[in-house]
């Protein structure tokens, strides 16, 4: 009898066991995702770096060169692989579409959390989320049949270029940014708003000075995910951007992004050939640039937080 009680007292309680099990299981899942992430990064780096050590492409030339034809070699015998036009276009398209989409996402977010009636909320939210489910091809097709002719008639030229790509991306990233912004704004405790109003602030002042500040990290995460999608989007952009590997001269001159080039070429090249390696290098650049954006945004968030305090 005593031994039994002793055993019960000394052995961990049910809650402790659960706690341990929960911690272990969640740790395993987290570890799994980390391993997966590393696997993909190593996979891409392994293929992407071959261009530089196996095919003798100079990294600097790769980043700044403007001629892209990896199947042929230049006068030094290096493959012609200058990715600058695509890098520039990818950055421009991503930044500009985020710049246009963010104010609208913020406006909708604020409207839904601060002004709208419950009913309006119930209609608005699913409607916006609906937009993530439309396949890229359909966006691309709409862009091609509606936006491109519109651009052509307004600005001349062929109508293909960065501007229609930005507009198409606007619709594709708006739902992501909006939904996540709404969640970020909702997470701000009501007491913050009440305190601001009690101090005599107008509704706008409480939103602008308090709610936005408090929700800033969440809003930035939302923007990162929106930009990520813009960055990685290929099929829709490809249909409206024109796919010429030229430096963009203006917003309606045909050009090409990293992803559109990657997507349209990868199936036509042979694994292990220079052309294929060069495309994986584009994927690597993509990865590095999104890393850069990410770090940048985290840095800004930190600063914003400090100023807010």
């Amino acid at each position: 009898m005593d031994a039994d009680i002793k055993k019960r007292l000394l052995s961990p309680s049910k809650a402790t066991k659960q706690e341990r099990r929960g911690k272990t299981v969640t740790f395993i899942t987290a570890a799994f995702i980390i391993v997966l992430t590393f696997a993909i990064i190593v996979f891409i780096a392994n293929l992407g770096l071959r261009t530089f050590y196996k095919d003798n492409v100079n990294i600097w030339e790769f980043l700044t060169g403007t001629a892209w034809n990896p199947g042929e070699v230049d006068s030094h015998g290096h493959p012609i692989a200058g990715a600058a036009p695509m890098i520039v276009t990818s950055i421009l398209v991503t930044l500009l579409s985020a710049v246009i989409a963010t104010p609208f996402a913020l406006a909708i977010g604020v409207y839904m959390t601060e002004y709208a009636s419950k009913r309006q909320r119930q209609i608005l939210r699913p409607m916006i989320e609906l937009f993530t489910g439309i396949p890229s091809v359909v966006y691309g097709f709409l862009g091609l049949t509606i936006l491109v002719p519109l651009m052509r008639n307004t600005f001349g030229g062929t109508g293909f270029g960065i501007l229609p790509a930005i507009l198409v991306l606007f619709f594709m990233i708006l739902p992501t940014i909006t939904s996540m912004t709404v969640d970020a704004l909702k997470a701000v405790p009501v007491s913050f708003r009440q305190a601001a109003l009690a101090l005599g602030a107008t509704k706008w002042q409480s939103i602008y000075k308090i709610v936005f500040r408090a929700a800033l990290p969440g809003i930035f995460t939302a923007i990162i995910f929106g930009m990520s999608r813009a960055f990685g989007e290929a099929l829709a952009v490809q249909m409206v951007i024109g796919n010429s590997i030229l430096m963009p001269e203006n917003l309606v001159s045909p050009t090409s992004t990293l992803t559109s080039q990657l997507t349209s070429q990868i199936g036509n090249t042979i694994m292990g050939s220079v052309q294929n390696d060069a495309l994986w290098s584009l994927a690597l650049i993509l990865l590095l640039m999104s890393l850069f954006f990410n770090v940048l945004v985290r840095f800004i968030t930190k600063k914003g937080k400090m100023n807010g305090r």
Binding site: F160, M239, G242, N243, S244, T263, S264, Q265, G267
Partner: peptide, 11 residues
């Protein structure tokens, strides 16, 4: 000459 490139017959 450089021009637009499309990767499918449909486009």
């Amino acid at each position: 000459a450089a021009g637009q490139e499309q990767d499918s017959n449909g486009s």
